[in-house]
Amino acid sequence: MNLLELFSGIGGFSLGLHQAGFTFDKVYFSEIDRHAIANFKHNFPNAQHVGSVCDITGTSIERPDIITFGSPCQNFSAAGNGLGLQGAESSLIRYAIKAIDYFRPDIFIWENVKGVLFERHCRDFWAIVKALADIGVYQIEWQLLNTSWVLPQNRERIYLVGRLA
């Protein structure tokens, strides 16, 4: 199996999937912060950095079976500016959606702050769901989960999962 982790940071999805028992032949990751890239490479020395998410569909990587992404949340966060998809950071999710449409992985997983479900972001959330549904080949489900169930912190996050229908 191949994994593509977008907005990878230091590799939280890769680590979590590994700890859940998944093994990957290839791990690709997209990140722009040089410190996060170095940390990811330290944690996963065989992983291949594929550059910015903005250029992901121009890379020549093997088709990923799973795409994961925790797209920037600043514009959806309760403490953020409230710009939602109009914000420079949160609007980057369009590149993840483009990658899903391009690669057609078996599964994709999106994680974000619960603020994406706030009333002021309701249209943005449904625009994201619609863009993913319009790809036309995925069954999509989501749930708000509290990370305190698995981590020593009390943080609610939305997880949206798509799988080939």
Rank of each mutant, 00 (worst) to 15 (best):
F125N: 02
I107Y: 11
L83I: 08
F22L: 09
Q153I: 13
E5S: 12
A127E: 15
A88M: 02
Q143N: 09
F40M: 05
G136Q: 09
G21P: 04
T57Y: 06
V53E: 07
G12E: 15
T147W: 09
I128F: 00
S90Q: 08
R155Y: 14
S91Y: 00
C73K: 09
L3I: 00
E119D: 14
T23D: 13
L145W: 15
I66R: 14
G58I: 01
F24G: 13
F40D: 13
G12H: 05
V50G: 02
A78N: 08
G12N: 08
V113I: 10
G87L: 08
I97Y: 06
V113F: 07
D101L: 00
G115S: 05
E111W: 05
L160A: 06
N112D: 12
I128T: 06
Q74G: 10
V27N: 03
Y102C: 10
I97E: 11
I158S: 04
N112R: 02
D25E: 15
I61H: 03
H18S: 11
F22H: 10
Y95M: 04
Q48V: 15
S71G: 12
T68G: 04
L132K: 09
F40C: 01
E141Y: 02
N43F: 00
L164D: 13
Y138F: 11
G162P: 04
S52R: 02
Q153F: 14
K26Q: 13
S91M: 09
K130F: 14
F125P: 02
N39L: 12
G11R: 05
N2M: 03
L151Y: 15
G162V: 04
F108R: 02
S90E: 06
N154W: 12
